[in-house]
Each structure stands twice: as C-alpha cells, then as structure tokens.
C-alpha cells in the first residue's frame, strides 16, 4: 500500500540571479513501513525534495510541476491551513541540526504539548502524560524532570531524540528525517538510527531518511534513491544499490567511501569534479562531466530510467542497446515507462 507517491516533481528557486532548478523531475513511491533512503551530495536536491513534500519550500522557491500524493491526497497546491493540519500530524519531519532546531526560550515539555494541542483534543493532564510517555519512548531518562527543562540543558543527542519525540507525538504515518545524524557524534548516531528502527515497528511508521552517509543507508533502509543534480540517478532496494549498482555515480560513491573491509587495503578513489550549476542546468546527464564512461549522447540528452530488474532503475545511457558493452552495466530492452 502506497503511503506516498511523488510524480515528476520539479521545484525551483526564483532568485534575482535567475531560476535555480533544485529538483528537476523526480518520481518515487513509499510503501507502508518502508524505510526509504535518499542519498546524494550537497546540492543534489535531496533536502529540497523533502521540503517540497511538506510544503515547506520558502520563498523564493516553489514547486513548479508534478504531483505528490499522500494516502491518495494531492499535497501540491494545498492551502497553508490544510498543510498545517497534515504537518506534525500525518507527516512529520526532523532536521539536521538539533542544536538550533528547538526554540531556546520554551521548555521542551511545552514544545511537545503545543503540538498535541494543535492536532488533538487532549486535556492538560493527558498531554502532560503523553509528553512524558513520548520522552520515555525515545529513551530519554528521567522524563518527568526533563519536560520542565529548556533545550540548552539537553545534549545534542538528547535534543535530536526530543525532536523525534515531537515528530511522532501525533502518530504520523510518515516521518521524514533530513540528515538526522550528520551533526552528531558517531556513537550517538548509532543510537538515533536504532531508535528510528525501533520506532518504525512500534509506531507502524514509514520513514524517508535523507543523508549523504552510505553507512546509515546500509544500516537502516530497505529502499534507496540516489540523487544527483536534481535528478534520480538510480533507485532500488538496498541490496540492488549496494551489491549490484548500475550507475557510474553510485559506483563512484562506493569507491570513494572507506568501508570496513577486513584485511584488504583498498584505495579511496574520489570522484573528480564538482556538482553542476543549477542556475543553468545541463541539458544532458548531470553526471556527464565527471563520468569516465561519458558519451556524446550523455552530453546531449538526459537518459531515461532503465529498468534493470523489477524495482531497480538506473538513468544511464550505458544500459541502452546502442551503447557499447561495459563491464558492470547490464543492457536492457527498451525504456522504463511510468
């Protein structure tokens, strides 16, 4: 059952320098209880995608094309009021930097209760109990004391957990986590990831997790989307992406990340070059300048998404019948059509 269907999403920022096309045509689905990982570098469009889903794209940005269906309901062009009812209630989001994401002048408990007040009809006592319950759920010790404290009295990891507590307070169906672990220590990272895993089961959640950290993806996700230059480069199950990647960019990512391979000493091979300029995006494949298998067609036209196996798609001309044989790239018949 599909919780979320994103079809051909385009989001741009209309700055005084011109139109910056952050998201240039993305489609994906999230099924119930999926943990979908969106991986990419800075500027790939992954954060803007998540903000677009929540309707949080600020001026001068806006969704220029496409549709986003949540539980069958169209989210694009909903009024501000309607979106407020969904946010925090049906879809929640947590952000990257827990140090600055909580309002410093209000007590943590009050911030949680405020969300409950906005979306439910609970009484004061009920909200209080629920707040304590939520803090327990996210493994914050001494919740009774903690709800009366201010954010600056929490550590980084605790603040992130408080944010998660706020996000799940109204039992949303979908939780979007934008780089939830990037700003935290490695040990705390593991705790947060475990927490998200357990919450998925306890709260019957579906999760979208956005990160540039492949390790996190491998740890928790069942499905993955790889983004670059505002487009999807490859998508599939986590096995597809890790064991049998079919896109030069994905392969490049694996090679440039130190992995825990015992015994073997492997070279780290960084991907040369820099991300594309989204003010004047390239007409062809965005990865063209950095790809060692680049062809003329890659410069001219954007490759369509080729279906390698069911559910495993890659946007690369190498999969086309007309392309030369290259080891590691499977040719497919025809194009993948929506």
């Amino acid at each position: 059952m599909k919780i979320l269907e994103v079809k051909n999403l385009h989001t741009s920022f209309f700055t005084h320098m011109g139109e910056v096309q952050a998201v240039r045509g993305i489609s994906f689905d999230v099924e119930k209880n999926d943990i979908l990982g969106i991986v990419g570098e800075s500027g790939s469009g992954k954060s803007v995608t998540s903000l677009s889903i929540m309707g949080l794209v600020d001026q001068p940005g806006k969704i220029t094309e496409g549709s986003i269906l949540f539980d069958g309901r169209e989210l694009v062009n909903l009024s501000h009021h309607e979106l407020s009812e969904i946010r925090g209630n049906d879809i929640s989001m947590i952000f990257q930097d827990p140090m600055t994401s909580l309002n410093p002048v209000f007590r943590v408990g009050n911030q949680i209760k405020e969300i409950l007040k906005t979306h439910t009809n609970m009484t004061k006592e009920e909200m209080n109990e629920r707040a304590i319950e939520l803090l327990k759920l996210v493994n914050i010790p001494e919740p009774e004391t903690r709800i009366r404290q201010y954010p600056h009295q929490f550590s980084g990891g605790m603040r992130q957990r408080a944010m998660i507590a706020m996000a799940i307070s109204c039992n949303p169906k979908l939780l979007i986590a934008d780089e939830p672990t990037t700003a935290l220590d490695v040990t705390i990272q593991a705790q947060i990831i475990d927490l998200l895993k357990s919450l998925k089961d306890k709260q019957d959640l579906s999760i979208i997790i956005i990160t540039h950290d492949l390790g996190v993806i491998a740890e928790i996700c069942n499905k993955v989307i790889v983004m670059y230059g505002g487009l999807v480069m490859e998508q599939g199950t986590v096995l597809d992406i890790f064991d049998r990647p079919e896109h030069p960019y994905t392969k490049g990512l694996h090679q440039s990340v130190p992995k825990n391979v015992t015994g073997e000493k492997k070279r780290l091979i960084p991907i040369d070059g820099t991300p594309p300029d989204l003010l004047e995006p390239p007409t062809g494949c965005p990865f063209y300048p950095r790809c060692k298998h680049a062809m003329e067609v890659c410069r001219q036209k954007q490759p369509p998404l080729y279906e390698i196996t069911k559910g495993h798609l890659a946007a690369c001309w190498l999969h086309d019948q007309s392309a030369p044989e290259v080891e590691g790239y499977t040719k497919v018949k025809g194009e993948y059509n929506e």
């Binding site: 929540m54 949080l56 501000h80 009021h81 407020s84 009812e85 969904i86 946010r87 925090g88 209630n89 929640s92 989001m93 952000f95 930097d97 600055t100 994401s101 909580l102 309002n103 410093p104 002048v105 209000f106 405020e114 969300i115 906005t118 979306h119 944010m163 706020m166 996000a167």
Partner: peptide, 25 residues
C-alpha cells in the same frame, strides 16, 4: 532560524509561529 522551521513542520499555525515562537526570541 531552524526552530521556526521546526515549528512550521510540526503544523503550528503561522500566526502562532510568529506571535509566540518568533516574537519571544
């Protein structure tokens, strides 16, 4: 600030975001 974005993401009405969260700070 980020916490304003958090408040909006949690569905707090724009009026409250401005008059409560933003103003006090």
């Amino acid at each position: 600030q980020d916490y304003i974005r958090t408040a909006r993401a949690n569905g707090i009405s724009e009026f409250k975001v401005l008059s409560k969260h933003a103003l006090k700070n």
